[in-house]
Design a binder for these strands. Sequence first.
DNA 1: TCACTGGTGTTATGATATAACATATGTTAG
DNA 2: CTAACATATGTTATATCATAACACCAGTGA
Lengths: 129, 129
Amino acid sequence: MTHIADLTRNQTLVLDKLSRTDQPMSAYTLLDELRGDGLKAPLQVYRALDKLVAQGRVHRLESISAFVACQHPDCQSHAATVFMICEKCGRVSEQADADVAKALARMARAESFVAEKMSIELRGACGKC
Amino acid sequence: MTHIADLTRNQTLVLDKLSRTDQPMSAYTLLDELRGDGLKAPLQVYRALDKLVAQGRVHRLESISAFVACQHPDCQSHAATVFMICEKCGRVSEQADADVAKALARMARAESFVAEKMSIELRGACGKC
DNA sequence: TCACTGGTGTTATGATATAACATATGTTAG
DNA sequence: CTAACATATGTTATATCATAACACCAGTGA
């Protein structure tokens, strides 16, 4: 049922880079760090990111225009995904939560709103900071 | 020029413009529409927006890099504010919800995370579309 | 008066993202 | 096989979003 598509070279480079850090990265930072691997233009990174995000392997943090590798074993779950972004150390915690999902589903229903994408992002200070 | 409350001229221009539409606007769209009122540079708009957002009179929609006037009578409430953004007609519905706020507060507590800002945005199709 | 604060105006620049077009490669139907 | 199609890629240029830096001015309070 869950088909894992094979990644192309550029997608692999981007996902590998994101997976090896615990912090989100901007598309241009990714590009800079992948120049040694032959990437030269923003579009090469953005196209790879588009695919990875569509597959759920990478998430875009809207509030900081950056990307993180999915930390979640199964991102196909129907629970809402909440990102807690530490503004001091930059680290991001990704948590799914059924209560949030239920409350949002109820709100959407009340408005006859059909949600296709959702982003829930908290910014502040993590426990270590 | 009639100033609203304690707002400056530029802040008043920006808030007026945002209040007269039911759709979010980008900073540059605001600038274009306010050129007739004497605004000439992006910073004039961004500075006004910064103040208005800090006061809670305007919200920034992170996922679409746009701004909306607050639709909420009392935005000082402690409930989480959820934005439902229709990708067809562009209209935005702003709703506060205690259940969402509680669930997010519980999650943050569990991680010892201290949230300073939060953004909750659903994108999809509204009831009319 | 003088320092301080906050708003304004202006030019320049930085940061994020996509358009448009050319080329290549793999898959599939005829 | 090969024509048609879909998809990935490379490249240049451009669009879109946001801030840095500096100068000026007006109000406030010691």
